[in-house]
């Protein structure tokens, strides 16, 4: 397997190459505004570091969000077009899963809140249970104002940029002993996403690449003040399918 993984759902533009066993190369640049400029050169650079020619790729994996739409789409269309041009398959991974997986890989055990920047004073969030390096999602991803999260949810150890942006409301950033401020706990690391994707591909899971927008397009007008958290039905349904598959396939997840 030669898997190219990329994610543009958080503040990092992240690319990795994975051989089915391990990450061969991984590169991230934190720049939430220049996905269009930076992603393609980063793909070329990461392939070179992994000593992998583009025609050796066998799979592409991409973070499907949720994340700010414009950047998210740059990653998705890049992954879809590249896979199409090489005649290989593209697999989607919920970007919040990759943040949770980074915590699990770092040794976190127990419940975890993932809260990433959704802009407009909101966060994308979901809870996970981490055990023995694996993750079990406890919610479907959603978008909300941090203050509207229940107290017991906000009390959970939290990864993603939520605690940086709303330190009074999300006051418990996950602190993995000895790890310090791990970039993979703030923004998606494509290396972590690649490992997650490789396991799910091996397990034969359904991995749709539909973007998880979680907001309707008509709620996007800058002047809009109405809190909108309406889910687009099809990704939600697909996400639910994905989650169920994941719960059923717990054994594969625990081996990280």
């Amino acid at each position: 397997m030669r898997l190219l993984a990329l994610d543009t759902a958080t503040s990092a533009i992240s690319v990795a190459v994975h051989d089915g066993e391990r990450v061969l190369a991984s590169r991230s640049v934190v720049d939430a505004r220049r996905h269009t400029e930076l992603l393609a050169p980063l793909v070329v650079e990461t392939l070179a570091r992994a000593a992998t020619a583009v025609d050796e790729l066998t799979h592409v994996a991409v973070g499907t969000g949720p994340g700010p739409f414009t950047g998210l789409r740059v990653g998705l269309v890049t992954a879809q077009t590249l896979a199409h041009a090489r005649g290989i398959t593209v697999h989607g991974v919920c970007s919040l899963d990759a943040l949770a997986a980074a915590a699990a890989a770092g040794g976190h055990e127990g419940e975890l809140l993932v809260a990433s920047d959704a802009r407009r004073k909101e966060v994308y969030w979901a809870r996970y249970r981490c055990a023995a390096g694996g993750i079990t999602p406890l919610d479907e991803p959603a978008v909300t104002r941090p203050a509207d999260l229940p107290d017991d949810v906000r009390a959970l150890p939290t990864v993603g940029r939520g605690p940086l942006l709303y330190s009074d409301l999300l006051a418990h950033p996950l602190d993995l002993a000895g790890e310090g401020a791990d970039a993979a706990l703030l923004d998606v690391d494509a290396g972590v996403l690649a490992a997650l994707a490789a396991r799910r591909i091996a397990a034969g899971e359904k991995m749709p690449v539909e973007p998880l927008y979680l907001r309707r397009p008509d709620a996007v007008a800058p002047a809009s003040t109405a809190p909108m958290s309406a889910l687009k039905p099809s990704p939600r349904q697909q996400q639910r399918d994905l989650r169920q598959g994941e719960r059923a396939g717990r054994g594969a997840e625990a081996s990280q």
């Binding site: 393609a40 070329v44 789409r73 590249l82």
Partner: peptide, 20 residues
């Protein structure tokens, strides 16, 4: 329009990278 342009530009770059 910025958002629409970015989809096309990113897709074109992916073709360029994938096909050399």
């Amino acid at each position: 329009l910025a958002g629409p342009l970015m989809v096309g530009v990113a897709s074109a770059k992916a073709l360029a990278v994938a096909l050399g």
